[in-house]
Amino acid sequence: MEPLIIPATNSTPQIHFDASLGKLVVKGQSYPENAFKFYEPVLAWTNDYLQHLQEQAVVTMELELPYINTSSTKCLMMLLEKFEAAHCAGKPVKVEWICNMDNESEYECAEEFQEDLTLPFEIIEKNSDV
């Protein structure tokens, strides 16, 4: 499967989804003009990938989102729900959310997603000022 790579802009995160590595990275601020349009190919790729997932190796969604607006949060919810469904179907998936603990809203956002999902979900402290 072709990797999905979208470079970051001021208002959209970098997307680096690589099937061969089993790693799906979303990294950067997210507040595009139209979040649904931006995340549409991201959701489609993930759908396709999870549906055909055979491997036994763990698939990791790595998130680092210093700022995320509400419509992007909605899209992220849709993305994580796909992961949650895969988990419930017995597929080896997990979430790693890298967080700057000094930023209350960033941590709170990660924590609230964690509260509502049952898949393995780890909040990892970002090394300060890196």
């Binding site: 507040y31 700022y67 607006n69 000094d102 930023n103 209350e104 809203s105 960033e106």
Partner: peptide
């Protein structure tokens, strides 16, 4: 933290 909150509310 207030800077982050203000930015977020502004957006």
């Amino acid at each position: 933290n207030n800077v982050f909150q203000t930015f977020s509310i502004f957006i």
